[in-house]
Every structure is written in C-alpha cells, then in structure tokens.
Design a protein around this nucleic acid. Sequence first.
DNA 1: AGGGCTTAGTGCATTAATTCACAAAGTCAA
DNA 2: TTGACTTTGTGAATTAATGCACTAAGCCCT
Lengths: 230, 230
Amino acid sequence: MTQLQRRKIPDAAIARLPVYLQILNNLAATNVLRFSSDELAALAGVNAAKVRKDLSYLGSYGTRGVGYEVTYLTHQIKRELGLMREWNVVVVGAGNLGCALAKFDGFLSRGFPVIAIVDNDPKKIGRTTSSLTVGDVKDLKSIVRDEKISIGVITTSSAASQAAADALVEAGITSILNFAPVVLSAPSSVSVRSVDLGVELQILSYFEQMRLETGSKSEIAPQLNTAGAR
Amino acid sequence: MTQLQRRKIPDAAIARLPVYLQILNNLAATNVLRFSSDELAALAGVNAAKVRKDLSYLGSYGTRGVGYEVTYLTHQIKRELGLMREWNVVVVGAGNLGCALAKFDGFLSRGFPVIAIVDNDPKKIGRTTSSLTVGDVKDLKSIVRDEKISIGVITTSSAASQAAADALVEAGITSILNFAPVVLSAPSSVSVRSVDLGVELQILSYFEQMRLETGSKSEIAPQLNTAGAR
DNA sequence: AGGGCTTAGTGCATTAATTCACAAAGTCAA
DNA sequence: TTGACTTTGTGAATTAATGCACTAAGCCCT
C-alpha cells in the first residue's frame, strides 16, 4: 500500500545477512550455483527456518523444490545492505589498532576502502602507513568533503573518543564504528556501532569461569549478535 | 534448592555487564561512591529498569532509597564475569591485526595479557613485536601448557582460520575469539565468539543506505549485542 | 499427464528480552 | 516516631525473536 516503504527487517536478521553473504561468496568461489536453506543453515550454524525467514524479508527470491541461486541472492542481499557501491572510510586515531585497520584487507575487500587516517598528535601527523599519510584531525571536515567519506572509525584512546566522535559528526559523518570502550553520545541521526574488544574477552571469561565452577557440564549458548546502531 | 546452582543469567544481560563495569571504573576514577540505576542507565544508554533487572541477576546488592555502591558492585560484576583473576591469551596469526592486538593496551588493562603470538609462516616466526617473539604454531600445545593460556585469539586469513581453531582446540584451549570472517566449527565444549569487522561496517552500511532511501527521516534502532559463544 | 519428491514461504506456538508500574525498604528531617 | 521522599527489586504485560510444522509450488521420472 504505502509506496516505497521499505520492509522493516528485524535487527537480528540484519545482523545475519552479512554472514550469509560471506558464505555465498565462498560458495560462488567454489562454483556452487544453487543451495537450499538447509545447506546455508548448516554452513551458518543456524536453524533452516530462520534462514528462510531471514531471506524472505528480502523478497521471495527462492524456487520451491529447488532452492536459491547463489549469484541472484548475493545480489539481493548486497542491494538490501547497501553494498552495491563502496563506502569510503576515515580512521580517527593512528595508534596500533588504527594503523592496523587502515591496512586491514577485510575492509577494502568488502567495499569499505580506508581513504584517510587522522590523529591529533603532532608526532604522528605526517607519518606514512601503507600508502596513507596520517592527517590532522583538524582537517577532518575538508577531508570528509573532498574524499566523499561516509563512515568514521574511531580507534583513539577512551579519553579522546568522544572528541573524535564530535569531530566526525561536525564533519558531516553519519555512521561511526567505535573501538574505544566508551558509550559515545551523538545525535540520533547518526548511527553509532561500538565494538569493544575487551568486552568480547570478558564474555568468554564468563563462560570459562562457568565451566570451572560447574565442572564443564553446562552447555554453551550460541553466539547471537543483533544489529542496530545508536 | 539445588545447591551451588549458578543463577542463569540471560545472554543479553551478560553482554551488558562488561559495559556497566567499564562505566563503574570511570565513576571510581572520578571518586564517585554511589549511583542510582537511573544514573547508570543514562551513562550506558539503556532503560533504568533494564539496569536494575540486569544487576538483580547478580544478587540484591543495592540499597533501596540510596542506590548502589561503586566499589562493591564492581566487585560483584567482576566476580560474576570471572574477572577476579587474569586469563592469559595467545594470538594465532602474526599479521597486521594480530600484531596490533598483541600490543593492544585494552587487553592487558582488562586482565587479558597476551602471553604469546604464533604463526605458521616461517618468514614471520622469530620476528619480535613489542617484547613478544612470534612462535611456531606447531609449538602451540607446549606454549599453552607452559604459559597456562586459557584464551586463543584468531587473526589469521580466512583460509587458515579453521586450521588455527583446530590447533587451539588440540592444544587444550576452551575459549576462542575469532576475527576471521568464517563460521568456525569446534566442539560444543569450546566457546567460540566471532567478531567480523567487515560485518560491522556492513551493518552501518545498511542504515546509511536506508537514510539515503527514506530521506533520513527514519529512526535508528539502538545497538544491541547479545552474549553467548558457540 | 500424473504422481512422487523436494524445498521455499509462512502462520502460529513458544521462548527470550524488554519495559512498565508498583510494593517494599530504606533515608532523612522535623 | 512519624511521614515525606527516594530508589530498589520484581511480578506482570508487552514486544521481539525463534523454531515448528504445514501448505504451496516447482522439478523430474515414468
């Protein structure tokens, strides 16, 4: 009815679509043309009904009795996730992690080229790391404009992370991936996603501890990650 | 009734406890002694009832009319998460990301010292990165035993990640943090948590795309991450 | 042409997570 | 000691996510 209305896809499903996409890429690389929801479910480690339901949010792109076509579904997932184009990335914070991410192959290969890296430390500005020269965070606004950058990645210290976020917002960025262990505040029009590597280990620690306490007879719950951004 | 039975804490709550802990550390650093669920909720960006319910899984550690004590609650959360001790970490894969994580301050500072880093590439074995010498993945078993390592972090290429996981399991590791964009298979007695940095950007891309299509009038859903391990 | 087989799509029951809203339990001031 | 005020802890309602089980559709073989 309502024209142009995008299907509202549940957050939990959105978080799984990239996983399916990754698996489809692998299937394509091994010349698989078709697959069933059962097969994809096994590869993704989830329930087959969930796979079918997730894919059904995209539309009705399978064939009953046959399955889904790898290339066609790949296309549909990429369209839904906005991956028909590249999104340029700027890294804020040229420390260990920032420089590693600037070089990180997994960003470029999935359509997120790191175009620029900036810092506020005069000692770091001007250094070169893998074909990128560290810029001044003060120039963020012009860099973002000139290089058509959409996404900012924060790899500063905790202390500097909110200032980095403010600078990104000020520069017109609307999507932020934050690695600092801080709950950032930003306008609600900006998507913020935080990955705290320490938290990941702490969650593992919880299960490790539990194993010790219970004598490892307890089951380990499946990993579930929900999409969403603040 | 059942003695020694650990309260079953929902996965979603476990994933939030480290966030609360981080905030409590900040409060302690600024000499705050007490806080209310409302205050913590504001700092964590969640609902106050959720904070209270999450904390209630630990026990009844607040005081009605007053709030919670920073140091006492910090202690309780750490106890629950198994953070009263350190957990030694080995990094498998001495590429950009692996080396950066080996140096990464956020691991050590939260009680997860990286004790060793290994690779299978003879060209990398023997190199030194921030006081650690890259070891041979073949020696993983003895390294894990001798250094009392509990957690393995996989930063290899996708192609090598399953072999790395197998090697870790073979070496007796029961908790794995995987950065390769692959769904690893491992015995159910082993906790596996995957962080795919590309996926994080793809999720942001989805919202970015949505903003473009809808003219940015749509609300952005809050980030939700659920704990668990496979 | 028809019947058996396979698999997508989905309504519905179940389970998990969130949020509301209020009683219980404390503080503090007079 | 009482009464006003604050804030926890938690039943109960709500919302979201999951998974079952069945229907609808298409393929393939005879």
